[in-house]
């Protein structure tokens, strides 16, 4: 085989190799640039710092309608509302309050008297067990009068969420939430909620069904 033929053979073989490579790319033989499955963007409720509920203090701050808290629009001043119990000694929530109040404070329904926290002489005030009267937006101190260790933790920033600046300075403030920004005072246990969607896998290899591994 002379020099010319050798070159022709080598270049020809290379050409064939490259052509087959090109054909491979053209036919997408290695799955190159396959279209990916659409992943829906997550609902904005899962990435915004909303709290579970809005407290009276928060409603005051955002200047919302506070007419729901005007007790003496219906009640008479100086005349404490009567408290009624059913046969099992459970408090009967009056019909007018039934939509907004569920009595479930404390396990075994032990804290079930309205006037444990509300002032019976002035329904627009709260009162602690030692008789200290507090405004509705000062409810955190009322909670703290019974829940000592939790109040201590809250005070140190350990219980409940903080926000803003960890490096608190005059114009960089650390924001705090009140107890009732998250807890419903009549039913303080935080209810279950739907979780944000689980991660989408690039290549789904298995399906996880609900409530497995019991």
């Amino acid at each position: 085989m002379n020099q010319n033929t050798k070159i022709t053979v080598v270049v020809g073989a290379l050409a064939v190799a490259f052509l087959s490579l090109a054909a491979g790319f053209w036919a997408n033989a290695w799955g190159h640039q396959e279209a990916r499955e659409e992943i829906p963007l997550v609902d904005s409720q899962f990435n915004t710092p909303d709290t579970f509920r809005q407290s009276y203090a928060e409603l005051m701050r955002i200047k919302a309608d506070l007419s729901d808290f005007d007790c003496y629009a219906c009640h008479d001043k100086g005349k404490p509302p009567p408290i009624r119990y059913d046969k099992n000694h459970n408090i009967v929530v009056p019909q007018e309050h039934a939509g907004s109040i569920v009595m479930a404070h404390g396990s075994h329904d032990r804290n079930n008297l309205c006037f444990n926290c509300h002032d019976e002489q002035n329904l627009e005030l709260l009162q602690t067990r030692d008789g200290k009267q507090l405004k509705l937006f000062e409810s955190t101190r009322l909670c703290g009068s019974c829940h000592g260790p939790t109040y201590r933790d809250w005070d140190a920033g350990v219980h409940g969420r903080t926000g803003g600046f960890w490096d608190a300075k005059p114009n960089q403030e650390r924001t705090r939430l009140n107890c009732v920004d998250c807890h419903n005072p009549h039913k303080p246990k935080i209810p279950g909620r739907h979780p944000a969607p689980p991660p989408h896998m690039l290549h789904p290899v298995r399906q996880v069904e609900h409530a497995t591994t019991h």
Partner: peptide
């Protein structure tokens, strides 16, 4: 955020205050 004095984003969104961050 944190080198600017702020809290991390995961902490600020936690609805139960389980996350704590600082110096």
């Amino acid at each position: 955020r944190t080198r600017d004095g702020r809290y991390p984003a995961c902490l600020e969104v936690c609805p139960v205050g389980a996350r704590k961050f600082g110096n």
